[in-house]
Design a binder for these strands. Structure first.
Lengths: 316, 316
DNA sequence: AATGTAATATAGCTTCAAGTTATGAAACTC
DNA sequence: GAGTTTCATAACTTGAAGCTATATTACATT
């Protein structure tokens, strides 16, 4: 004996509103329509759902019980509609993001926290990877959105790249480092110090090599390598070691961690940090939501960094 | 954006079963049917519920979420079906019974307890009343079933009366009463004792008067009146007072309370205790269930009473 | 008791989702 | 790349759901 859920919902409304006429109005249907629906349901049930021969239609006990269930079904149905509405507007759903480790830890995680303050019902699954892996995952649907450094001209045809930050790298050290507050820094000044190195398979490692070559230091001593950002910063703060990091990462944690960038110009590849999304698949609406949030937040961050740099340049 | 609950249920089954074909089978529908239903739902939703271009059909996150709600709706729907089935078989629902106070308290309440051991989901609302009130309530639907003494020939045309017990009244006293275990009892033996009287508006009060007149005692002293059965029995057990009660009531509580019936024949009206139900309205199925339970239980009680009486008669 | 009013039921019709079978298309397997 | 499985589409029938118009019935009122 399968009952129609719609019928139970209609029954619930009628019982709640206390009559066919009012119930029909609340449902946005005509009175005869719901009358016949109830007659139909009553037929199927085989017993009266309303006391017979009563004009302000009063439910029987069975009618009441079924109406109670109908009301629950109704509320679940509404929950579904609401979920859908929120999902479509990007206010609900799961969002899978991925990016290069250092940048995710150093910059994006803060933005994620801000985003979730606005959108508590968007669940974010974060994962790490380098460009090729990220692209693969974007293509096979394992990822909705990636954040990575990429040279705009190298963007794959099936991807859309939105640059959000300059990709400038800097030499970072602790704020109390002897080289800080020196006017100009020469290669000889830097040579004595040891280096913290990112994992050897990471793009940042190549950046480090490139950077050091650009200031004429081919050989360098590494005293720590392979750690993620938290470890790198810990070692950086606890020693006079140097390392190469995106300026945005240094900028974000310079106050809280007590680190700074040396006023040395190093070379870096023509890459920009940005958001990568598949062109064909639109992904969940929350992806667009998050992307636009990131874009505007990172634009503000870029502005703050630009401002700081001007001030520093004037002072120095 | 109102979604069809049926669609959500179908979605839930498909997601659970892991495919259209299996889902359709589980639903007892053809595969094209559910396919089109899903297509329809997907249209309404406006976003994919399943990953496009995947053959063992895999739901998207939105599809999963909606399916979860659909599963809940489905289980509620099944709950409704089950409720209906149980209700129709008389295994669920509320049952409103009414009857004369002494008999309800003394006999029926025990039966109710037994009944509820078998049918825990039948909620019984008990109320008290005398014949006229009971009939009124049966007629206006405030009561599903009444239990009262009634002379079968006086049964109203719109009611069905099922006699279940002889209406014999007896003179009751405590088991330790001086008159118990005397061979024959005369009017003079009884005369000195005081009487416990039921409420003056009760039929049992008339029975008491009739009974005493029948043994030649016109004037009688009343030392307690108006109480319900529990009080009457308390006073009875705590004193040498006498009273008139249906034999069935005495029989039920003779062991536990320590009361007994005097071996005196008293007159009583030609009434039988029975179940009264309206002829037209069938009432809830649990009424029939309860009525048949009562009938058989009280038949057994009658047999036990008959047996006891034979034994007593042989002995006496 | 008659009558007026409000509420529900019925009639007759149209529309469209849901069901069917038959068949086409696509993705996975090996 | 051939075969198998799985899903989608086509073409059609059926019946529930919706509507308007109207009849019926219970309650209220005098």
């Amino acid at each position: 004996m399968k009952l129609d859920s719609d019928h139970l919902e209609i029954l619930a409304v009628i019982v709640e509103k206390g009559g066919l006429t009012e119930g029909a109005e609340a449902l946005g249907k005509s009175q005869p329509s719901v009358s016949r629906t109830i007659a139909f349901l009553q037929d199927r049930v085989g017993m009266p759902l309303f006391e017979p021969g009563r004009r302000p239609l009063r439910p029987t006990e069975l009618g009441q019980s079924l109406a109670r269930i109908g009301a629950q079904i109704r509320s679940l149905n509404q929950e579904a509609s609401q979920l859908l509405t929120r999902y479509r507007a990007g206010h609900a759903g799961r969002l899978r993001i991925g990016g290069t480790p250092i940048f995710m830890d150093g910059v994006i995680s803060t933005m994620v926290a801000d985003f979730q303050a606005h959108e508590p019902d968007v669940q974010i699954d974060q994962s790490y990877g380098y460009l090729d892996e990220l692209l693969t995952q974007l293509r096979n649907g394992a990822l909705d959105l990636a954040i990575a450094p990429l040279s705009p001209s190298m963007t794959p045809k099936d991807m859309e790249f939105t640059p959000v930050l300059a990709g400038r790298n800097v030499v970072a050290c602790r704020a109390s480092h002897p080289l800080i507050r020196r006017g100009a820094i020469t290669m000889d000044d830097i040579r004595p110090y040891q280096w913290i190195s990112p994992p050897e398979n990471s793009p940042l490692y190549l950046d480090l090599q490139l950077a050091l070559r650009s200031i004429g230091q081919e050989n360098f001593r590494v005293n720590f390598s392979g750690g993620s950002l938290a470890s790198i910063l810990s070692v950086l703060v606890g020693s006079d070691s140097l390392t190469v990091l995106p300026y945005s990462v240094v900028f974000m944690s310079r106050k809280t961690m007590g680190i700074d960038a040396l006023p040395v110009k190093i070379e870096h590849p023509a890459r920009r940090l940005g958001i990568i999304r598949p062109k064909d698949r639109s992904g969940p609406p929350s992806a667009a939501q998050f992307a636009s949030f990131l874009t505007s937040e990172l634009a503000r961050l870029q502005a703050r960094m630009d401002h700081e740099q001007q001030v520093t340049r004037r002072r120095g």
